[in-house]
Design a binder for these strands. Structure first.
Lengths: 142, 142
DNA sequence: AACTTATTAGTAATAATTATCTGTGTTAAC
DNA sequence: GTTAACACAGATAATTATTACTAATAAGTT
């Protein structure tokens, strides 16, 4: 039953499992919608009305740092978060920004030895663009 | 001397090739650095001190809309612009955000017929992460 | 229970971008 | 050539997403 938060070996800083952190992780885990910080804030608020948006941001940062959740930094848009960690890729609706999972995506080859003048390439990812069902049906949604 | 305006067939709106627009496109074309709007603003200012940042943004938007330049909307970072239109991909330095060109990148297969529940996939792109030479040598630059 | 200090709520600050507004220069119509 | 229409400029204000600051609180240890 040991806590995950007892000690960070690197920094020596003791991390605490606060109610807020617990609820944020719980609620994110219940979602498949890849919410933004603010969207998750609205949800968490229902269980904990006084929580602040800053706390949500801070904990999402922390959890991403710990590798417990993943940041989805999709091109030119707001940051989104995902508690599902199995390797997969993402599509984004170019109309509304909704993000979906792609499990049968393109497999990228090893990229570490690529010859790119001026850069040492360390990684790569594929981003898909698309239209979500909702936007496809309602042909003029934002 | 041809008239200095363009007629947009789609909108019927008459567009003007202003000094500002001309210089913005010229200076961007001279750069291989994929500048941000503000970086380009600083450069254009040397030729036209009274130009405003808003004008740079407005014209970059316009030029991108017309397909004369490309927007580089790299994950979770500031927008950058590129006047070089031949198909290529980009690396971004994870330390300083600098963007470089990748010409020998992964070729993505056609993606339009992918089966992704809830989405119609229309396109895809590869984003590379890396470290630029400068950051690699000075091991503690931002 | 007392103590230490990481974390919180609340708020202010920052950064990037977009919108507004008024004046000006070009263009098209007379 | 005048004039009316209007795209665009510069200046500035507003917005949006995110981060920083601070005093009070509470998690985890002793």
């Amino acid at each position: 039953m040991a806590s995950n938060y007892e000690h960070n070996e690197n920094t020596g800083i003791q991390r605490r499992l606060t109610k807020q952190r617990k609820i944020i992780l719980e609620e994110l885990s219940n979602l498949t919608s890849h919410p933004t910080a603010d969207e998750l804030y609205q949800i968490v608020r229902q269980r904990m009305p006084n929580i602040s948006l800053g706390t949500v941001y801070r904990n999402l940062d922390f959890l991403a740092e710990q590798g417990q959740i993943a940041r989805i930094e999709y091109s030119g848009s707001q940051m989104r978060f995902d508690a599902f960690l199995d390797p997969h890729q993402h599509v984004r609706c170019v109309k509304c920004g909704a993000v979906g999972d792609v499990f049968n995506g393109v497999k990228l080859p090893k990229v570490a030895n690529m010859d790119v003048p001026g850069f040492t390439v360390t990684g790569a990812r594929v981003e898909y663009d698309g239209i979500c069902e909702q936007c496809a049906s309602q042909n003029k949604q934002n």
